[in-house]
């Protein structure tokens, strides 16, 4: 695909664009968190880029709890993907924030669709978006503690809202009393083991 956006980004932001790549045809730019909104606005407004179509915003946890420090710098990689219906090209902009009180500015003024996605990133990873008009959880509930997609959150640490009944659960086959199949492959610790 066209590398036009990446070139324009480099020309415009210079050293603030830390890294560009085009692995398997995906144009990716890694930028400094301080310029996050500026870059987003540029990609949206610049007539040669014109990425007005908001595709996705999410995050990746780069920390491996077996080897890394949980508060490491550059722990969460937040990315946004934008597409131009006019020029038919797309770009992925990434930035990294620290694991200790991660914060980032919101891009809702640029693409209004970022609203729920930022809520989701907050819910799943605990990244606070400054200036977000409605910073609530979205997929889990308000009583939920922790951020489930962080690598150090055990996959099966449930936080039930209603008390489980006790007594007999005499299910017949094929169901066992405490059904479940831990796959035992995860990087995250498993509560049951």
């Amino acid at each position: 695909m066209s590398k036009l956006i990446l070139e324009r980004l480099k020309a415009q932001f210079g050293a603030d664009v830390l890294e560009v790549s085009s692995f398997r045809g995906d144009d990716v730019a890694l930028v400094k968190p301080a310029r996050w909104v500026d870059v987003a606005r540029f990609v949206h407004d610049d007539p040669r880029c014109a990425c007005t179509y908001f595709v996705d915003l999410s995050a990746v946890d780069l920390c491996d709890p077996r080897t890394d420090d949980l508060d490491m710098d550059d722990r969460f990689e937040v990315y946004v993907i934008a597409y131009s219906v006019e020029h038919k090209h797309r770009v992925r902009i990434k930035t990294r924030v620290s694991g200790d009180e991660p914060r980032l500015a919101t891009v809702i003024p640029v693409w209004s669709g970022a609203n729920w996605m930022e809520r989701e990133v907050f819910d799943m990873y605990g990244v606070h978006f400054e200036g977000h008009p409605d910073p609530r959880r979205i997929l889990t509930y308000d009583e939920f503690k922790g951020h489930p997609l962080r690598k150090d959150y055990p996959a099966n640490r449930a936080q039930p809202l209603v008390e489980y009944r006790d007594g007999t659960f005499n299910k017949l086959g094929p169901f066992l009393q405490d059904e479940g199949m831990p796959l035992n492959r995860s990087a995250a610790p498993d509560e049951r083991n």
Binding site: T52, Y53, V55, V85, W111, S112
Partner: peptide, 9 residues
């Protein structure tokens, strides 16, 4: 239209 685009629909 514009709304749909910026919403990612």
């Amino acid at each position: 239209k514009e709304h749909a685009l910026s919403m990612g629909v």
